[in-house]
Structure formats: C-alpha cells, structure tokens
Simulated scan of single mutants.
Amino acid sequence: MPSFDVVSELNLMEVDNAFNQARKELAQRFDFKGTHTDLERDKDLNVVIQAGSDGRAEAALSVLMEKLAKRGVPLEGLDPQQVEPAAGGHVRQLVKLKQGLKQEDAKKIVALVKASGLKVQAAIQGAAVRISGKKKDDLQAAIQAIRGASLGVPLQFQNFRD
C-alpha cells in the first residue's frame, strides 16, 4: 500500500549558512557599525540577537530572515520571542527554531485528512504523520489538502513508498 510521511524539519546546514551570512552582513554594514549588534547560537541551536536598542534588534532579525528566505528555509520554522533587556543597556531577543512535529499539529493534520473525505488513513508515529492509501492519486490529493491548510509549521513530505 503506498504511503508517505509528513514531517517538520529545517535544513540545519542552510540555517547555519544563513546565520553566517547574516553575521557577516551585520559586521560589514555601515548602519550597524558601533552598535554592538551581533548574532549568536546557543546550545539548543537557537539564534540569540544582541543589540544596543530595540530597533537594532528588529533590523538584525529582518537581516536574518532575509538570509534564511534566500537560502530556502521556510520562515514558519522561526519563533521570535519578545525583546528583553540585557546587561549594559543592551537588549536580547531569542529566535527559536521549530524542529519536529508537535502532538497538537500532528492531530490537526490527521483531522484535516479525515475531514477531506479522501480514501486515505493517517496515523501519528512519533514526530511524523504516516499517510497511506490504495491509490497514488489519493495520496497526492492529501498532500495538496495539507499544503493548502497553512498550519503555521514548515511541512515536508518524505519517505514515499509505492
């Protein structure tokens, strides 16, 4: 029986490349000179923006998002947190990277597939949703239905088996 998996993963190599490009641009741009604006990665691979003001942190976030978009990383995979004050009159903003399909998102996908009326079955398997059916056409229709739903998380369709 044909099947495929719906997963939510970010290409960490592309995220790393975009992060490095954004750091270089922040170091070289004239409007960021002397503002102590920098990007860092923490132990959970999230991005921490440190800046002298809220405006600089927002501008640094837009540079990072621009570089991620150019590298093909879906921006739905970012979760920017609130700007918070840091030591020395600076501000800090944490940008979390969404990895993996959460349980409630997986349940939404299963409910969407069931509500579509297609002859496919959806089952949650850890951090993925396995969708199986008798016909490839039904599976392709399920992919289109899931893509059209815009659930707010980056989705990839992998592991297609015939």
Score class of each variant (00 low, 15 high):
108 K>I: 13
123 A>M: 13
125 Q>K: 07
123 A>T: 10
102 K>A: 15
89 G>F: 09
98 K>F: 07
95 V>P: 02
125 Q>C: 03
114 K>A: 07
122 A>F: 00
100 G>F: 10
107 K>S: 10
107 K>H: 07
120 V>Y: 11
111 A>Q: 05
90 H>K: 04
111 A>K: 12
100 G>D: 14
117 G>E: 09
104 E>V: 12
98 K>N: 07
116 S>I: 07
120 V>D: 14
107 K>Q: 08
105 D>Y: 05
100 G>V: 09
96 K>H: 09
95 V>I: 02
104 E>N: 13
89 G>I: 05
122 A>N: 02
106 A>Y: 02
106 A>N: 08
95 V>S: 10
126 G>Y: 13
91 V>E: 15
108 K>S: 11
88 G>T: 05
117 G>I: 03
91 V>C: 11
100 G>L: 12
101 L>P: 00
96 K>D: 09
124 I>H: 13
97 L>C: 08
126 G>V: 14
89 G>H: 01
109 I>K: 06
89 G>E: 09
107 K>P: 08
90 H>P: 07
99 Q>C: 01
124 I>K: 10
92 R>G: 08
118 L>H: 03
123 A>C: 13
119 K>C: 04
99 Q>S: 05
108 K>N: 04
116 S>E: 02
110 V>E: 04
106 A>M: 11
109 I>M: 14
113 V>F: 07
100 G>A: 12
106 A>R: 03
123 A>G: 05
89 G>M: 02
105 D>A: 13
91 V>F: 15
121 Q>A: 12
93 Q>W: 08
124 I>L: 13
88 G>F: 09
125 Q>I: 02
125 Q>A: 03
104 E>Q: 13
102 K>M: 15
102 K>Q: 15
108 K>D: 12
121 Q>N: 15
120 V>R: 06
118 L>Q: 08
101 L>N: 07
115 A>S: 00
95 V>H: 10
105 D>M: 01
125 Q>W: 00
107 K>M: 11
105 D>K: 01
102 K>G: 15
126 G>M: 15
115 A>K: 08
109 I>Y: 13
106 A>V: 05
117 G>N: 05
107 K>E: 11
96 K>N: 12
108 K>W: 11
120 V>P: 03
115 A>C: 09
92 R>V: 15
123 A>I: 12
123 A>N: 12
115 A>Y: 03
100 G>I: 07
97 L>H: 02
99 Q>R: 08
89 G>Y: 07
113 V>T: 03
103 Q>W: 05
124 I>R: 14
93 Q>P: 05
99 Q>T: 01
103 Q>N: 08
116 S>F: 12
124 I>N: 10
122 A>M: 00
121 Q>L: 10
104 E>S: 07
89 G>N: 01
97 L>D: 03
114 K>T: 02
96 K>L: 14
99 Q>D: 00
123 A>D: 14
113 V>W: 04
88 G>C: 11
116 S>D: 02
89 G>W: 07
101 L>F: 03
106 A>S: 04
104 E>C: 09
115 A>L: 10
111 A>N: 12
117 G>Y: 10
126 G>I: 14
103 Q>E: 10
